[in-house]
Amino acid sequence: MAEYKLTVAGLGPGDAGLITRATWARIEAAQHIILRTRIHPTVEVLDVAGISYETYDHLYEEADDFDELYASIVDDLMARARTMDVLYLVPGSPFVAERTVRLLRERTTEAGVPLEILPAMSFLEPLFAALGLDPVNGLSIVDAMDEEAVAASPAQDLIITQLYSRELASDLKILLMEHFPDTQEVIYLHHLALPDERVQRIPLFELDWQEDIDHLTTLFIPYTPGFWENG
Protein backbone atom coordinates (compact mmCIF):
# COMPACT_ATOMS: atom_id res chain seq x y z
CA MET A 1 0.00 0.00 0.00
CA ALA A 2 1.39 3.39 -1.00
CA GLU A 3 2.32 5.78 1.79
CA TYR A 4 1.47 9.39 1.15
CA LYS A 5 2.87 12.46 2.88
CA LEU A 6 1.42 15.73 4.06
CA THR A 7 3.79 18.68 3.70
CA VAL A 8 3.17 22.10 5.24
CA ALA A 9 4.93 25.24 4.05
CA GLY A 10 4.58 28.97 4.65
CA LEU A 11 4.07 31.73 2.09
CA GLY A 12 6.00 34.27 4.14
CA PRO A 13 4.81 37.61 5.51
CA GLY A 14 3.51 38.99 2.22
CA ASP A 15 6.36 39.98 -0.07
CA ALA A 16 6.85 37.25 -2.69
CA GLY A 17 10.61 37.69 -2.46
CA LEU A 18 10.49 36.37 1.10
CA ILE A 19 9.22 32.91 0.14
CA THR A 20 12.10 30.50 0.72
CA ARG A 21 13.71 28.77 -2.24
CA ALA A 22 12.94 25.40 -0.66
CA THR A 23 9.25 26.24 -0.40
CA TRP A 24 9.06 27.50 -3.97
CA ALA A 25 10.71 24.32 -5.23
CA ARG A 26 8.05 22.27 -3.44
CA ILE A 27 5.29 24.44 -4.88
CA GLU A 28 6.58 23.94 -8.43
CA ALA A 29 6.85 20.17 -7.94
CA ALA A 30 3.59 19.55 -6.06
CA GLN A 31 0.63 17.84 -7.72
CA HIS A 32 -1.92 18.73 -5.05
CA ILE A 33 -1.75 22.13 -3.35
CA ILE A 34 -4.30 23.54 -0.95
CA LEU A 35 -4.18 26.94 0.73
CA ARG A 36 -5.72 27.77 4.07
CA THR A 37 -6.78 31.01 2.41
CA ARG A 38 -6.02 32.84 -0.81
CA ILE A 39 -6.40 36.17 1.05
CA HIS A 40 -2.67 36.82 1.30
CA PRO A 41 -0.51 39.02 -0.96
CA THR A 42 1.91 36.23 -1.89
CA VAL A 43 -0.84 34.18 -3.55
CA GLU A 44 -0.63 36.51 -6.54
CA VAL A 45 2.73 35.02 -7.54
CA LEU A 46 1.15 31.56 -7.62
CA ASP A 47 -1.43 32.86 -10.06
CA VAL A 48 1.19 34.56 -12.22
CA ALA A 49 3.22 31.34 -12.32
CA GLY A 50 0.16 29.34 -13.34
CA ILE A 51 0.23 27.22 -10.18
CA SER A 52 -3.00 25.29 -9.62
CA TYR A 53 -4.38 25.11 -6.10
CA GLU A 54 -7.49 24.79 -3.99
CA THR A 55 -8.37 26.83 -0.91
CA TYR A 56 -10.39 26.49 2.27
CA ASP A 57 -11.92 29.94 1.96
CA HIS A 58 -15.41 28.48 1.61
CA LEU A 59 -15.11 26.99 5.10
CA TYR A 60 -14.71 30.46 6.59
CA GLU A 61 -18.28 31.18 5.49
CA GLU A 62 -19.66 27.85 6.65
CA ALA A 63 -18.07 27.51 10.10
CA ASP A 64 -19.74 28.95 13.20
CA ASP A 65 -16.44 29.83 14.86
CA PHE A 66 -12.69 29.43 14.45
CA ASP A 67 -12.57 26.18 16.41
CA GLU A 68 -15.01 24.60 13.98
CA LEU A 69 -13.18 26.11 11.01
CA TYR A 70 -9.76 24.78 12.00
CA ALA A 71 -11.16 21.36 12.87
CA SER A 72 -12.83 21.14 9.45
CA ILE A 73 -9.61 22.07 7.67
CA VAL A 74 -7.60 19.48 9.57
CA ASP A 75 -10.24 16.78 9.01
CA ASP A 76 -10.11 17.41 5.26
CA LEU A 77 -6.31 17.43 5.13
CA MET A 78 -6.14 14.16 7.04
CA ALA A 79 -8.61 12.56 4.63
CA ARG A 80 -6.67 13.77 1.60
CA ALA A 81 -3.34 12.58 3.02
CA ARG A 82 -4.62 9.01 3.02
CA THR A 83 -5.00 9.02 -0.77
CA MET A 84 -2.42 11.49 -2.12
CA ASP A 85 0.62 13.62 -1.35
CA VAL A 86 -0.59 17.06 -0.26
CA LEU A 87 1.18 20.41 0.03
CA TYR A 88 -0.69 22.65 2.49
CA LEU A 89 0.27 26.33 2.30
CA VAL A 90 -0.37 28.84 5.08
CA PRO A 91 0.34 32.57 5.36
CA GLY A 92 3.58 33.50 7.11
CA SER A 93 5.34 30.65 8.89
CA PRO A 94 3.74 27.32 9.81
CA PHE A 95 5.39 27.63 13.22
CA VAL A 96 4.01 31.05 14.19
CA ALA A 97 0.37 31.66 15.16
CA GLU A 98 -0.91 28.84 12.94
CA ARG A 99 -3.52 26.81 14.81
CA THR A 100 -4.19 24.35 12.00
CA VAL A 101 -0.55 23.28 11.99
CA ARG A 102 -0.57 22.62 15.73
CA LEU A 103 -3.67 20.48 15.28
CA LEU A 104 -2.11 18.67 12.33
CA ARG A 105 0.96 17.76 14.34
CA GLU A 106 -1.26 16.14 16.96
CA ARG A 107 -3.51 14.34 14.49
CA THR A 108 -0.76 13.03 12.21
CA THR A 109 1.18 11.70 15.20
CA GLU A 110 -1.90 9.85 16.45
CA ALA A 111 -2.73 8.46 13.00
CA GLY A 112 0.83 7.68 11.91
CA VAL A 113 0.56 9.93 8.84
CA PRO A 114 3.93 11.26 7.61
CA LEU A 115 4.17 15.03 8.12
CA GLU A 116 6.89 17.43 7.01
CA ILE A 117 6.85 21.10 7.99
CA LEU A 118 9.18 23.44 6.12
CA PRO A 119 10.69 26.49 7.85
CA ALA A 120 9.51 29.88 6.58
CA MET A 121 9.76 33.56 7.39
CA SER A 122 7.00 34.87 9.66
CA PHE A 123 5.71 38.41 10.18
CA LEU A 124 8.12 38.73 13.10
CA GLU A 125 11.28 39.29 11.05
CA PRO A 126 9.85 42.32 9.18
CA LEU A 127 8.50 43.58 12.51
CA PHE A 128 11.94 43.36 14.12
CA ALA A 129 13.39 45.21 11.13
CA ALA A 130 10.72 47.92 11.20
CA LEU A 131 11.18 48.57 14.92
CA GLY A 132 14.92 47.97 15.11
CA LEU A 133 14.08 45.42 17.78
CA ASP A 134 16.28 42.60 19.06
CA PRO A 135 14.02 40.12 20.91
CA VAL A 136 16.88 38.64 22.91
CA ASN A 137 15.82 40.62 25.99
CA GLY A 138 12.37 39.04 26.02
CA LEU A 139 9.12 39.43 24.17
CA SER A 140 5.51 38.34 24.62
CA ILE A 141 3.45 37.45 21.54
CA VAL A 142 -0.29 36.95 21.93
CA ASP A 143 -3.33 36.54 19.71
CA ALA A 144 -5.69 39.52 19.74
CA MET A 145 -8.62 37.15 20.32
CA ASP A 146 -7.04 35.58 23.40
CA GLU A 147 -8.45 37.87 26.09
CA GLU A 148 -6.79 35.99 28.93
CA ALA A 149 -3.35 36.30 27.36
CA VAL A 150 -3.85 39.96 26.47
CA ALA A 151 -4.95 40.73 30.03
CA ALA A 152 -1.93 39.01 31.57
CA SER A 153 0.96 41.07 32.92
CA PRO A 154 4.05 40.70 30.71
CA ALA A 155 7.24 42.16 32.17
CA GLN A 156 8.50 42.73 28.63
CA ASP A 157 7.50 44.15 25.26
CA LEU A 158 4.18 42.90 23.90
CA ILE A 159 3.19 41.99 20.34
CA ILE A 160 -0.52 41.48 19.66
CA THR A 161 -1.11 39.73 16.36
CA GLN A 162 -4.13 38.61 14.30
CA LEU A 163 -5.73 42.04 14.70
CA TYR A 164 -7.90 41.51 11.65
CA SER A 165 -10.86 43.92 12.04
CA ARG A 166 -11.90 47.24 13.54
CA GLU A 167 -14.47 45.43 15.67
CA LEU A 168 -11.74 43.27 17.20
CA ALA A 169 -9.54 46.36 17.61
CA SER A 170 -12.34 48.05 19.54
CA ASP A 171 -12.69 45.09 21.90
CA LEU A 172 -8.93 44.95 22.32
CA LYS A 173 -8.72 48.66 23.08
CA ILE A 174 -11.30 48.37 25.85
CA LEU A 175 -9.42 45.45 27.37
CA LEU A 176 -6.07 47.25 27.23
CA MET A 177 -7.55 50.38 28.79
CA GLU A 178 -8.00 48.39 31.99
CA HIS A 179 -4.19 48.49 32.27
CA PHE A 180 -3.10 51.55 30.31
CA PRO A 181 -4.24 55.17 30.16
CA ASP A 182 -6.22 56.16 27.05
CA THR A 183 -3.24 58.15 25.79
CA GLN A 184 -0.70 55.33 26.16
CA GLU A 185 1.48 55.29 23.05
CA VAL A 186 1.34 52.07 21.04
CA ILE A 187 2.86 51.20 17.68
CA TYR A 188 0.52 50.28 14.85
CA LEU A 189 2.07 48.01 12.20
CA HIS A 190 0.29 47.35 8.94
CA HIS A 191 1.36 45.42 5.81
CA LEU A 192 4.95 44.92 6.92
CA ALA A 193 7.46 44.37 4.09
CA LEU A 194 4.87 45.45 1.51
CA PRO A 195 4.85 48.67 -0.57
CA ASP A 196 2.09 50.20 1.58
CA GLU A 197 3.76 49.34 4.89
CA ARG A 198 2.70 51.61 7.73
CA VAL A 199 4.44 51.82 11.10
CA GLN A 200 2.91 54.56 13.21
CA ARG A 201 2.89 55.58 16.85
CA ILE A 202 -0.66 56.32 17.98
CA PRO A 203 -2.42 56.82 21.31
CA LEU A 204 -4.28 53.72 22.43
CA PHE A 205 -7.68 55.39 22.17
CA GLU A 206 -7.19 55.79 18.39
CA LEU A 207 -6.57 52.08 17.77
CA ASP A 208 -9.98 51.27 16.29
CA TRP A 209 -10.02 54.52 14.31
CA GLN A 210 -7.51 53.06 11.84
CA GLU A 211 -9.40 52.46 8.61
CA ASP A 212 -6.91 50.05 7.04
CA ILE A 213 -7.01 47.33 9.72
CA ASP A 214 -6.95 43.86 8.17
CA HIS A 215 -5.43 40.40 8.64
CA LEU A 216 -1.92 41.85 8.19
CA THR A 217 -2.18 44.26 11.12
CA THR A 218 -0.20 43.95 14.35
CA LEU A 219 0.11 46.03 17.52
CA PHE A 220 3.30 46.56 19.49
CA ILE A 221 3.31 47.86 23.06
CA PRO A 222 6.71 48.64 24.57
CA TYR A 223 7.03 47.45 28.14
CA THR A 224 5.94 50.20 30.50
CA PRO A 225 6.78 49.49 34.17
CA GLY A 226 3.98 50.46 36.50
CA PHE A 227 0.90 50.21 34.30
CA TRP A 228 0.53 46.42 34.23
CA GLU A 229 1.43 46.14 37.89
CA ASN A 230 -1.28 48.64 38.81
CA GLY A 231 -3.93 47.15 36.49
Rank of each mutant, 00 (worst) to 15 (best):
E3C: 11
Y4E: 03
L6R: 08
V8L: 15
A9F: 06
G10H: 02
G10L: 08
L11G: 01
P13W: 04
P13G: 03
A16C: 15
A16H: 15
A16T: 12
G17R: 05
I19H: 04
A22V: 14
A22M: 13
T23L: 05
A30S: 05
A30Y: 08
R38P: 09
I39C: 13
H40E: 10
P41H: 15
V43T: 07
V43Q: 06
V45L: 13
L46A: 04
D47I: 13
V48P: 04
A49S: 05
I51V: 11
T55P: 07
L59K: 00
Y60L: 08
E61S: 12
E62N: 10
D64A: 15
D64R: 09
F66H: 07
F66K: 15
E68M: 10
Y70P: 01
V74I: 03
D75N: 09
M78C: 08
A79T: 14
Y88D: 07
L89D: 05
L89P: 03
V90R: 12
V90K: 06
P91H: 05
P91Q: 15
G92I: 02
G92R: 11
F95W: 14
V96L: 11
A97G: 04
T100K: 12
R105F: 01
R105A: 01
E106H: 11
T108W: 12
E110K: 14
G112N: 04
V113F: 15
E116W: 04
A120S: 13
F128S: 01
P135E: 01
N137L: 12
G138Y: 04
S140V: 14
V142D: 09
D146N: 06
E148C: 12
A151Y: 07
S153D: 02
A155L: 13
Q156G: 11
I159G: 00
I159C: 11
R166S: 09
A169C: 01
A169R: 00
S170D: 11
K173C: 06
L175G: 00
L176I: 02
E178Q: 15
E178H: 14
H179Q: 13
T183Y: 15
E185T: 03
L189E: 03
H191D: 12
H191L: 09
E197S: 09
R198E: 09
R198N: 15
V199L: 07
Q200S: 09
R201P: 01
R201Q: 12
P203L: 00
P203M: 00
F205L: 06
E206G: 04
D208N: 13
I213R: 08
D214P: 05
H215C: 08
H215M: 12
T217N: 02
L219P: 00
F220Q: 00
P222I: 05
G231M: 13
